[in-house]
């Protein structure tokens, strides 16, 4: 469970987030929507322990993350979160296999186990046939599927997805959303930022941000 209390983030004089408070339960699929500059990505990054709040607190599974040092934050990121980005951020010179392998190596998994796990996750995103392809040779949709495979490789309980369909056409966007939905059904907590109301319909809950404030927090039917 993630609890955010009175979260504020300022960049100089600009208030990106103003007194945000919310709770995200385990296994929830939450979509955060809003216009550009509304603070949705900032909120996502702070929850994902990549950025730091100016004030307020974030409690992840009962542990207040504010005040954790660099090492503890890194450890929390590694064990708890998987990230999916709009621009995929795959290493283009790496093969699909190598891209997915990075988090597993960092975790210290043995070679044999890594191979098994990579095949497993690539299978789950339907990319098992392309594990020897270079990332630069994949289509946008395929890249994002590999990025999702990489995000879930370490089996993190929370997936942070920042505009996962932003660079994809409708068809591939739907494929990615279906994958996220599948992950949610497997018990993962999904936190997704999106511009698209269509994509937000895949979530259980939609939080709307405007000028750094939550203007609505509704459950999807």
């Amino acid at each position: 469970m993630i609890t955010v209390n009175n979260l504020t983030k300022t960049y100089g004089k600009f208030n990106a987030l103003r007194n945000i408070s919310l709770e995200i339960n385990d296994g929830e699929f939450v979509a955060i929507i809003g216009e550009s500059g509304s603070g949705k990505s900032t909120l996502l990054n702070i929850i994902g322990q990549i950025d730091f709040p100016s004030s307020g607190e974030i409690i992840v599974d009962g542990e207040n993350t504010v005040g954790l040092d660099d090492k503890e934050t890194a450890k929390l990121r590694n064990s708890t979160f998987g990230f999916v980005f709009q621009a995929f951020y795959l290493e283009p010179t790496y093969t699909v296999y190598r891209n997915v392998e990075i988090p597993l190596i960092l975790k210290g998994m043995k070679r044999k186990d890594r191979k098994q796990r990579i095949e497993e996750v690539l299978n789950s995103v339907d990319m098992q046939d392309k594990l020897k392809n270079k990332a630069s040779n994949l289509s946008g949709g395929e890249m994002q599927r590999v990025a999702i495979a990489r995000a879930i490789a370490n089996n993190p309980p929370i997936i942070i997805a920042d505009e996962p369909c932003g660079n994809l056409d409708t068809k591939n966007g739907d494929v990615v959303m279906r994958l996220l939905r599948d992950l949610h059904e497997q018990g993962k907590t999904i936190l997704m930022v999106t511009h698209s109301y269509e994509h937000s319909k895949w979530a259980d809950r939609v939080i709307k941000l405007c000028d750094g404030k939550i203007v609505s927090d509704e459950k999807n039917n």
């Binding site: 890194a74 929390l76 290493e91």
Partner: peptide
């Protein structure tokens, strides 16, 4: 930059 970003998002500390 992508590589470092991945290291960071996969739990490698800034110091490392």
């Amino acid at each position: 930059s992508v590589f470092y970003g991945l290291l960071k998002s996969n739990g490698v500390s800034n110091k490392n």
